[in-house]
């Protein structure tokens, strides 16, 4: 039984305009983030995974702008809000950002100021979204720091971010994201800057918090290992489009899009045999401003069907838990 959607993205388009022309960073992206589930979004640089996160929070700066589509919060409820219709600086959007939707960054210092203590920043974040006295907010902040696994939270609350290790800083970053008690959390490469043993701890923490709080987690990563470990459903992106969605087991067992297949075979593995060569994908990801015609993966695709792939854009992936691929190959889209 599928959980209801907490956030539905429909045909989202984002463009960046500069002297050289128009870059279509997102070109018709649709997916559902289900309540209490983890949706992994995976792709190589320039695929649009971070732009997706930033558009949801309305953090796209000029010259970028949302040119189409909808971002629906509580889509099935009586009070669905289309975030694309809100002014990014409006009070309502500020309540959504950090309140309904928390954000975890790759580098926690993006979210933290060097000038204030960890405690000051979390207390402020809590009070922005909840009507609490300073003392109550401080107690909340200490509880939150304990919850994200920071030892001696009563003492650490007075630390400055630079006094903490990378792993502890990311824990503070997670506490910040949770300060407004969100039911949706977007984590953009939350462990990419961390060492592997710290990464394992932070992934474990995210899993635990998600389960306990029933958070809908949108986890953006380039690492197929992190996807395999964390996601319930996966969306694979390439050049501003979703090329495949699938439940995680199916994605790894029977990927349907040639790009997903190629990507999985290209990942170096700790289970490799000595001197094992990897399957490669020819060429490189094109610049988003030089998007190929038709299916944008066709110049690198080894399973191309011919003219059709060069000329026509395949239909978007079907919505729904079973997913599918945006590809002309027989059976790909079911």
């Amino acid at each position: 039984m599928a959980e209801p959607s907490a956030l539905s993205i429909r045909d989202l388009a984002v463009q960046f305009r500069n002297e050289q022309g128009v870059i279509r960073a997102l070109d018709g992206v649709s997916f559902d983030l289900r309540a209490g589930q983890t949706l992994g979004i995976v792709g190589e640089s320039g695929c649009g995974k971070s732009v997706t996160a930033r558009s949801i929070l309305r953090l796209i700066d000029r010259p970028g702008r949302i040119t189409g589509g909808q971002i629906l919060l509580d889509p099935a409820g009586p009070q669905a809000i289309d975030l694309t219709a809100l002014d990014p600086d409006s009070r309502q959007m500020q309540q959504v950002r950090g309140g309904r939707i928390g954000l975890i960054f790759q580098e926690p210092m993006t979210a933290l100021s060097v000038h204030y203590t960890v405690g000051n920043q979390i207390i402020e974040a809590i009070r922005q979204h909840r009507d609490l006295s300073k003392a109550d907010a401080k107690a909340q902040a200490i509880a939150l720091l304990g919850e994200v696994g920071i030892p001696h939270p009563q003492r650490r609350i007075d630390a400055y971010p630079f006094e903490l290790s990378g792993g502890l800083r990311q824990r503070v970053g997670i506490a910040m994201a949770l300060a407004g008690n969100p039911d949706i959390v977007i984590a953009d490469e939350p462990t990419t800057a961390l060492d592997v043993t710290t990464q394992a701890q932070i992934l474990g923490l995210l899993q635990r918090l998600q389960r306990e709080k029933g958070i809908a987690l949108m986890l953006i990563t380039h690492d197929m290992g992190v996807i395999a470990e964390m996601a319930d459903e996966v969306a694979v992106m390439y050049l501003g489009r979703i090329v495949e969605t699938a439940p995680v087991e199916r994605l790894f067992a029977a990927p349907r899009h040639p790009y997903t297949r190629a990507l999985l075979r290209a990942v170096p593995s700790i289970l490799a045999t000595p001197r094992q060569r990897l399957s490669t994908i020819g060429g490189a990801v094109p610049h988003p401003g030089l998007r190929p015609t038709g299916c944008s993966f066709h110049p690198r695709c080894t399973e191309m069907l011919g003219e059709r792939c060069r000329r026509e854009i395949p239909a978007s992936v079907p919505l729904g838990v079973s997913g599918g691929a945006s590809c002309f190959l027989p059976g790909a889209s079911e």
Partner: peptide
């Protein structure tokens, strides 16, 4: 600690505690 690209192996590892 390395997450293996295989969902069937999920949850089998116990991360080491503490920091470097």
């Amino acid at each position: 600690a390395v997450p293996a690209p295989d969902p069937a192996r999920r949850g089998r590892r116990i991360p080491v505690t503490g920091e470097v």
